[in-house]
Amino acid sequence: MSSLATEPAAPPASVSSPPRPRRRRRLPTVPWLLLSASILILGVLTGYPVVRMLVMSFQEYERAQVMGMPAEWVGFDNYTAILTDSAFWAVLGRSILFMLVAVVLTMVLGTLIALLMMRLGKGLRLLVSVGLLLAWSMPPLSSTTIWGWIFDTQYGLVNNLLTRFTGERWFGHSWLLDPLGFFTILTFIIVWGAIPFVAFTMYAGLSQIPGEVLEAAQLDGAGAFARFRLVMLPYVRTIVTVLVVLSMIWDLKVFPQVYALQDIGGDRQKTNTIGVYIYQMGMGQGHFGTASAIAFVFVAIMLLLSIYYVRRTMKEEEL
């Protein structure tokens, strides 16, 4: 701990000379030693699995190989198999379509709520914040069960209210069985949980815009929409882009919500998204090789999507 214990001669010297000018430039072994545990963990538990995934994607790897049969190299067979499989394209298209709808809804509604928060007094703003925080903090699985219950076939609130107000009997109507209904409920779950992050971040960004600028625009006769589009948006353009990229990534890999909704009562074949598809292909049906090929395609898509985010963060942090 104390310098006296380690370097008896140091104190007098350091008093006279300025704080050890070049002594901090140590041998690079110290930082690497400090990083060694992280490198070990990430190497074994992230690096190796990626390599393993890549290797398996070029092998015939089924249940028999799990039992100990040697895995045979099959070249690009797994890749040609998935790329010519219409089921794979259906899953991919479905995932991307869902992602686009969810991202647009999240961004638009989140931004509107941020703009609303700018107009509110302290008290009401706190009220809105409390509501947002509560939704944000819900574990994904808990929120999925809640929405599942609200749309329940037999006694769900939605069917109950519809019966009351339309005069028709809605009890027994299953929302989840129809893929469109399934994805509507999934959108509710995801967007409800994702708006708070977007709203808070947009609010934090928008409230940093100098008030004079907005006032000047108003004096020049700019309406509310023109002020938003021509003044506010350029200020927060980078924030918007990052939020869009992050939302795209998060909504594309949605898993627990889909999986749990399928448990409650969805048609798995018609509602799989890419993450759940990988799980079923591998863990469910034992096609580990094919699943690895899909997983690798998935990783490639995600990394492509995140290039902008990574580059911007590097610039931001002055790496």
């Binding site: 992230t46 699995p49 580990f288 997983a295 790496l319």
Partner: peptide, 25 residues
């Protein structure tokens, strides 16, 4: 710098894609 960029990129690899190989390992 390389290490930091790597940390950033690793965070972008979806865990959902890793389940198969992690399970095998």
């Amino acid at each position: 710098r390389t290490f930091l960029v790597l940390i950033l990129v690793i965070q972008m690899i979806p865990g959902e894609a890793m389940i198969i190989s992690l399970f095998r390992i």
